[in-house]
């Protein structure tokens, strides 16, 4: 009595869908679980800064350089924490490295989009509020869609890279892990070069081609790094 091929194919497909969804949900839910506080703190910090500026009749604020623009660093930290928590549980529950990879790719993309969107919203709202309060806004105005696009790319690259770094240290230990870390930081460095350099420092943006190609290459490279790290992950005999 063996399972028919068709029933089996169906069962496997269903299982992989469930497993991938479980990882995606964990990545998104786990990030927002703390991420909601990140945005609360960001808003509070912005309010404090604005209040001080208003009291002292300060020189003005660059919205793009505010806390909202650093979502990617928060995501980076979360992305390092989450994989190690779910990996043993997921494999023990019947998931595979492939469903882990897919789940983290999807979860990272979703989280990156969400955080970039909320950050962009804050950046859009901030000058409006500053306007009400008669605080001068510094920095060149820039197209909001470009800001959103670059934030999306940055956030996702940082999430993928964080995931990959976590697994890299788990697999290779301290010394080799640190050496690999330097390699893994290349995609975010590229993304930073291609985008934020122009926005934050007030330097002119690199040409659109550099932005698009740089982001695309950084995304592809960080996703590949993540896949490569999970692909052949060996669970050690005694891991909590």
């Amino acid at each position: 009595m063996t399972t028919t091929l068709e029933a089996r194919r169906e069962a496997v497909a269903d299982h992989e869908r469930r497993a991938t969804r479980a990882v995606t949900q964990y990545a998104v839910g786990g990030t927002w679980y703390i991420g909601i506080w990140y945005f609360v703190v960001s808003v509070v910090a912005a309010v404090v800064v604005i209040t001080i500026e208003v009291r002292n009749g300060g020189v003005g604020i660059n919205p793009a350089a505010g806390p909202a623009g650093s979502a990617r660093f928060f995501l980076f930290v979360m992305a390092i924490l989450l994989p190690l928590m779910i990996t043993p549980v997921h494999l023990a529950a019947g998931g595979t490295r492939r469903t882990l990879t897919r789940g983290f790719l999807r979860g990272g993309a979703a989280v990156g989009l969400m955080f970039a969107a909320v950050s962009t919203l804050l950046v859009v709202v901030q000058p409006v509020v500053l306007g009400w309060l008669d605080v001068p806004v510094v920095g060149d105005p820039f197209p909001i869609l470009t800001y959103l696009g670059t934030q999306v790319a940055l956030c996702i690259v940082y999430v993928f890279t964080g995931n990959a770094i976590a697994i890299s240290y788990y697999r290779f230990g301290g010394w080799v892990g640190t050496a690999v870390l330097l390699l893994l930081l290349l995609p975010p460095a590229l993304a930073e070069y291609a985008t934020t350099v122009g926005l934050v420092t007030g330097l002119p943006l690199p040409s659109p081609a550099v932005v698009v190609v740089g982001c695309a290459v950084a995304l592809a490279a960080s996703a590949t790094a993540l896949w490569f790290m999970f692909r052949d992950l060996q669970v050690r005999p005694r891991v909590g």
């Binding site: 009595m1 399972t3 069962a11 549980v89 019947g94 595979t96 492939r98 891991v239």
Partner: peptide
Amino acid sequence: EPGSLEAAYENPWASMNVQLVRESGDVW
């Protein structure tokens, strides 16, 4: 299943049908 054994590693059919519980628990 008897008569159709296959490699256990990174095989979804195998991993969905094999449950290992270790003393460490593999829970959060």
